[in-house]
């Protein structure tokens, strides 16, 4: 199934603007994040920490609805879903 990834801020520089990913039917959000993390060392560093845990501060949206941290592991994706990833900026 095709999943569209919309990357923002620093993550957009690493994975590009809009990326379509082909995942097996029934894949969850963790599988998509693992696929993105495996694309490059930079991509992995942005998404996960040294222990392999998804970085806490990143905001994830599926079909423009925010996914809470606690729900992240249980989200199952479907054909045509759009996943947006925003690593928030902090400067001023």
């Amino acid at each position: 199934m095709k999943i569209t990834v919309r990357a923002f801020a620093r993550f957009r520089e690493v994975v590009g603007d809009v990326t379509a990913l082909d995942l097996p039917e029934g894949s969850g959000l963790p599988a998509l994040l693992a696929a993105l993390a495996s694309r490059s060392d930079e991509s992995r560093d942005l998404l996960v920490d040294e222990q392999g845990t998804i970085r806490e501060h990143i905001i994830f949206m599926v079909n423009r609805k925010r996914v809470s941290r606690s729900a992240l592991d249980s989200i199952i994706l479907a054909e045509g879903d759009e996943v947006a990833i925003y690593p928030p900026v902090a400067g001023g």
């Binding site: 923002f8 801020a9 620093r10 928030p88 900026v89 902090a90 400067g91 001023g92």
Partner: peptide, 10 residues
């Protein structure tokens, strides 16, 4: 609230 970095802001 506002924040920025590089080309990005919110």
């Amino acid at each position: 609230h506002g924040a920025v970095s590089g080309y990005d802001g919110h």
